[in-house]
Design a protein around this nucleic acid. Structure first.
Lengths: 341, 341
DNA sequence: TGTTAGCACTCTCACGAGTCGAGTGCTAAC
DNA sequence: GTTAGCACTCGACTCGTGAGAGTGCTAACA
């Protein structure tokens, strides 16, 4: 069976209506719509075809039809009209991001909040991670007699810091000297190169061996970037407004997934692609079987990227979500790049 | 009307039962309990009295009774048996906290997760804040040509750091020199004293005026400690398992409150008291009218404290919650103090 | 005087029957 | 190819009924 223009048109009308109402769409509803010049009976025939083709489902005989995951896929790929974000919304984003907080965590949190507020879905934003980080500077700042803060400044301007033990009695100037030494030998190296070099370096330094092993620990930890990347979620409660989640048990298990950093991580893993739309079963988390996830990336410099995701019901307003994400991606990129360059 | 021992006993039995089942308790149920030697009829008379005294409510004529907020208050203050945490649970806490992460944020997050897991309620944990912070050291670490990280090391070993702009071309050694200068003149001062002094100091330094005003900005920001304290929530989804939240709208507005840092802050504000129990209407957040909040403090050194809170239904298992919080308070105090001394 | 058995009463909850309405599929006519 | 007509289906809602749990009251008992 061929799928002709009229079928596309009807399918689009059904999806548009269902996105708005969440109520199965009947033939009369479509027929009444302006621009459709056919009677309910004709629509019914087409709908029957579309069902056979797998684009529509019927909850029960005497209800209307609802779009299948396959239909949403088609919708996102072909039918949907991409729009630009209107001026009011862009202003709103700028307003919320313009507080020069400079701290990545804070920006990420703000972004998650604004995204969820504007879409009325749930938003997840991850902090930036670099593919190829090289070290620019290592510095030790004394904190107590026996502990110092190790700060790693990277080529991308990103920072990692961690408290590590140092030999008692080391004073600020000594630590500064050591920092200079470390910086000189480490500058320009990637984290893993640095880690290796530090192994040799440490044995030479003798007395500082303990210190070095602490530094290595930190590097190891940072190499496993996932665990240390900030991850902010906004609008957890939003989804509960939709009839899809009128069942508390469903809502509960949905929220439980949001509490797992690990699962959120897989959700955001964007394969480096700029935009990703995953619909219902395409996400391999059973609790999200009737959710869709749209992700987008933002960039700082050449090779530092972060990901933002919007989680909503499969019948989400894809066009709006994508335009919001698109604009937000640029906004965050600008904001964070500006601070670091 | 006097409230005698038997009334206390019956009230306790009713509360204990209701905490377990969330179902209105009838006279027969109490009568059947071992240790109660009275017929349902006698119990009924006592229950009728307790209702008149305001300790029991009746959802409708032919249902059992449920404890009122007043009853829970009495329960917490007098009736409840305080218990020690059993060995298995203490081991579990130690296990989860023992990963020497050293980073406050991570410890706080872990604590929130363990607390919520162990109680099956929702947990909120705030980072430590000091009443009387004095500055021990200020240090600038170059990050890019025109930005540096300002690190404030305080008397309590706590750290605040923030990225600030610096004049272009300032190299690492210059910044280190400046750091030494700043540290010398600021050491031992409180944040607000430092802020004031910096005003004068800055005008003298001429060329560094801009830099100084950035430093002042940071201090101002840190003085308003609330905004910068980390705040972690665990087990958001837990409460949805309870019949109290079988209504989605209720669940939604509950979760919405959890998304507001501000409201969470007021929830935790413990007035410096070691333990706080607030029951239903005693919390002045309408969405929490049938919740209770139990908070406890942990301590680092003499004057640095943080707060942990458990949010559950009013019929929560207060005895368990308090014993878990009690132990966790000690555990966190030990963990964080150990790292910093 | 305190305790208990007995009993009528109340109210919720679960169940089933009946009705309504939205929507379908099919057929026949245009 | 399109449409009107019609019988049919199925969920949502309403109403009535009966069971069950629990109460309050009264009268009897120790």
């Amino acid at each position: 069976m061929k799928i002709d223009d009229r079928k596309y048109m009807i399918l689009q009308a059904i999806i548009d209506d269902y996105i708005m109402t969440a109520v199965p769409v009947g033939s009369r509803t479509i027929s009444r719509k302006s621009g459709v010049g056919f009677s309910p009976a004709t629509i019914r025939n087409e709908m029957s075809d579309l069902e056979e083709l797998g684009y529509l489902d019927q909850p029960h005989t005497s209800a209307g039809r609802i779009p299948s995951a396959k239909a949403y896929r088609l919708y996102v790929d072909q039918l949907m009209k991409h729009t630009e974000l209107n001026e009011e919304d862009t202003r709103r984003i700028q307003e919320h991001l313009n507080k020069r907080t400079a701290q990545v965590e804070e920006v990420i949190r703000q972004a998650a909040m604004v995204l969820s507020d504007m879409t009325r879905y749930t938003a997840v934003v991850s902090g930036p991670t670099a593919k190829e980080i090289t070290i620019k500077r290592l510095q030790l700042v004394p904190v107590t007699d026996s502990a110092a803060l190790l700060i790693i400044v990277t080529s991308t301007g990103m920072l990692k810091e961690k408290l590590i033990p140092v030999p008692e009695g080391a004073d600020a100037d000594q630590l500064y000297g050591l920092s200079k030494l470390l910086t000189e030998s480490m500058a320009g190296k990637s984290l893993s190169e640095a880690r290796e070099q530090l192994g040799n370096f440490g044995t030479k330094l003798g007395q500082h061996r303990e210190l070095m092993s602490s530094v290595i620990d930190v590097l190891d930890n940072q190499l496993d970037g996932d665990a240390s990347t900030p991850l902010m979620v906004g609008g957890r409660s939003n989804l509960l407004s939709y009839p899809e989640y009128s069942d508390v048990e469903k809502a509960r298990s949905f929220l439980a997934v949001l509490e797992s950093r690990e699962k959120l991580g897989t959700l955001l893993r964007g394969n480096g692609v700029e935009f990703t739309v995953r619909i219902g079963p395409e996400i391999d988390i059973p609790e999200f079987a009737d959710c869709s996830v749209v992700t987008a990336s933002y960039h700082i410099g050449k090779d530092t990227t972060g990901t933002m995701g919007i989680i909503g019901p499969t019948r989400m307003d894809y066009a709006r979500v994508m335009s919001v994400l698109n604009y937000m991606g640029k906004a965050i990129s600008d904001l964070l790049s500006g601070d670091r360059e």
